[in-house]
């Protein structure tokens, strides 16, 4: 192993851990909140099963607003909110708040898109069989859209890694922050290159895994 990596081993391991926490929380938020929000966006649109103009417009507007913020500004803008939830606006835990929020907005849009790809006729068949909305979602929509949902999550996770790299501004740490502080600000270009290589490997692994799973579960 290159000497410089050995020298900074402890910091590197800690940074990777911080990135995992930030990206992990983003993934959880995407699945636990983004998926339902995206599903609601789909179900509440005009002509859909739960058509509801108020819910649709409200969610649609919220998602658009969050996504149109330059992320750095969103982080700063959310500081008071973060302080209420976490008790502090500084550190890795605090960094997860804006990340979770952008994750929800990001993934919910992709969920909505995947569900729109499900043929209308399949939903109609489900309703003609007497399915409840819940059954339409779990036994038809998610089954039919599953590869799109996985690919969307893959794309999202890669964006989350990218978002997490700037969380140094609120002391969130992570590999990106490490690369900037040591590699860029202290002119250790070699160290920065290694950090970039680590990120590239992560992204490749995630993309490969996502694409493979999506292909395996797609029987269309």
């Amino acid at each position: 192993m290159p000497e410089i990596l050995v020298q900074y081993q402890a910091e590197i391991v800690r940074s990777i851990g911080e990135t995992f926490v930030m990206v992990g929380v983003s993934i959880l938020a995407a699945i636990l909140v983004g998926l339902p929000v995206g599903t609601l966006l789909f179900l509440c649109r005009k002509g859909s099963v739960l058509e509801n103009r108020f819910i649709f417009s409200t969610l649609n507007l919220l998602v658009n607003i969050i996504r149109s913020f330059p992320f750095l500004l969103l982080v700063v803008f959310l500081i008071p909110f973060t302080r209420i939830i976490i008790g502090t606006a500084i550190g890795t835990a605090a960094a997860t708040v804006p990340l979770a929020i952008i994750a929800i907005a990001h993934y919910s849009r992709l969920v909505e898109q995947s569900l729109l790809d499900v043929p209308k006729g399949v939903i109609e068949a489900a309703i003609s069989m007497g399915a409840t909305v819940r059954q339409v979602i779990f036994k038809f929509l998610y089954v039919e859209a599953r590869s799109g949902l996985v690919l969307g999550l893959t794309t999202s996770i890669i964006s989350f890694i990218s978002y997490s790299t700037i969380m140094g501004v609120v002391g969130g740490g992570g590999i990106g922050d490490f690369a900037i502080r040591y590699g860029y600000q202290q002119f250790k270009t070699e160290l920065m290159m290694y950090m970039i290589i680590i990120m590239v490997i992560f992204v490749q692994l995630i993309q490969f895994t996502g694409t493979t799973i999506a292909r395996r579960i797609d029987k269309r």
Partner: peptide, 21 residues
């Protein structure tokens, strides 16, 4: 109505099967 629909079968021009099942 959902209950009643269970005893009214329906088929379609484009079959509308779940492709992933």
């Amino acid at each position: 109505l959902r209950q009643a629909r269970k005893s009214i079968g329906m088929i379609f021009q484009h079959f509308n099967l779940v492709a992933n099942k």
